[in-house]
């Protein structure tokens, strides 16, 4: 596969820029961008996981130094996400053999990006027009869902306490959450922070600072494990692609963080929402437009 190095570097920088600007991982943008460029979906997903392991390591270290990681919670999440990740890698293998992996990835992304993009767009447009007034209608609804889930988790076995976060709950809660995120890492090349963080804040009621550190810790070791497994099982990690992405995203993150300090937060979220919606629309359009040639050819690697 011949791909323009500068383009990949730019993708890395763009996604790093956005993540520095808004504070999201950006895995959910890298994979679709790589697929648009013509990189096979399995390679995009696997190299994306390797890239995230790279970029998450520095940030995790900083949070560890600041004592922002709840290791007990993190380890239970990690056990869950390793199990989920391992299952996802074999699921990817089965789907690849059936020739359906690309379809599954594209549809999962359309759903995911459509959902994230539209909800972010509504939220940030509201914030921009009401200029900073707290969103009164959303918060109670979220809290209600959260408390219902919390009541359900409270009835589960294996109750245990997490001193760093100051919460007490069943170990099954983080285990299942981790497993769901692990499957997504294998199938979509995303870290899952966009699910993990709200669930930990609203459902598990953990302090925000600890949530960010713990989710980064979990992300680092989940993406690392998935990267190793994808290389081992599916031979799909492209080292050059991943390294270029890491370089690009490190540069982009620095720029993004610098600019992000100067721009108002709701405008930043609007920018990200527009980018996400644009990618989702592009994916849907690709699905709807009849292809120029319905046939396509891939060279089998050895």
């Amino acid at each position: 596969m011949d791909v323009n190095i500068v383009l990949i570097l730019l993708y890395g920088a763009l996604v790093g820029f956005l993540s520095g600007l808004v504070g999201v991982g950006g895995g959910f943008l890298i994979t679709p961008l790589l697929i648009f460029t013509g990189i096979p979906p399995i390679v995009a997903v696997s190299s994306g996981a390797a890239q995230m392991a790279g970029t998450a390591s520095g940030a995790s270290y900083l949070h560890w130094r600041h004592g922002n990681i709840d290791f007990k919670m993190g380890l239970i999440l990690l056990i869950g996400s390793w199990l989920g990740g391992g299952f996802g890698v074999y699921l990817a293998k089965v789907l690849l053999r059936a020739g359906q992996f690309g379809n599954v990835v594209v549809f999962l992304y359309v759903i995911l990006l459509g959902f994230i993009g539209v909800s972010m767009l509504i939220e940030s447009l509201g914030a921009v027009f009401r200029s900073g007034a707290p969103d009164a209608s959303e918060a109670p609804a979220q809290a209600a869902t959260g408390s219902r889930l919390r009541a359900w988790i409270a009835r589960l076995p294996w109750q245990t306490s997490y001193p760093v976060s100051g919460v007490r709950m069943s170990a099954l809660g983080p285990l299942v959450l981790g497993a769901a995120v692990g499957v997504m890492t294998s199938l979509m090349g995303v870290g899952g922070g966009f699910i993990m963080v709200p669930v930990m804040i609203y459902v598990l009621k953990m302090p925000t600072k600890i949530v960010v550190g713990t989710s980064l810790f979990q992300l680092l070791f989940t993406t690392a494990a998935v990267s190793v497994m994808q290389a081992g099982v599916n031979h799909s990690v492209d080292p050059f692609l991943a390294l270029i992405l890491i370089l690009g995203s490190v540069l982009g993150t620095k720029l993004g963080a610098r600019l992000g300090a100067r721009l108002p937060a709701e405008k930043l979220r609007l920018i990200l929402a527009l980018v996400v919606v644009a990618v989702a629309v592009k994916m849907i359009v690709t699905l709807l437009i009849p292809p120029g040639d319905i046939y396509d050819m891939t060279v089998e690697v050895r």
Binding site: G54, S57, S227, V228, A231, G232, L243, V250
Partner: peptide
């Protein structure tokens, strides 16, 4: 390869970021 490369990616990210 997967193990070593992932470790390398983590070290690189660490060196560049932290």
């Amino acid at each position: 390869f997967g193990g070593l490369f992932t470790l390398l990616a983590m070290l690189l990210g660490f060196a560049l970021n932290a």
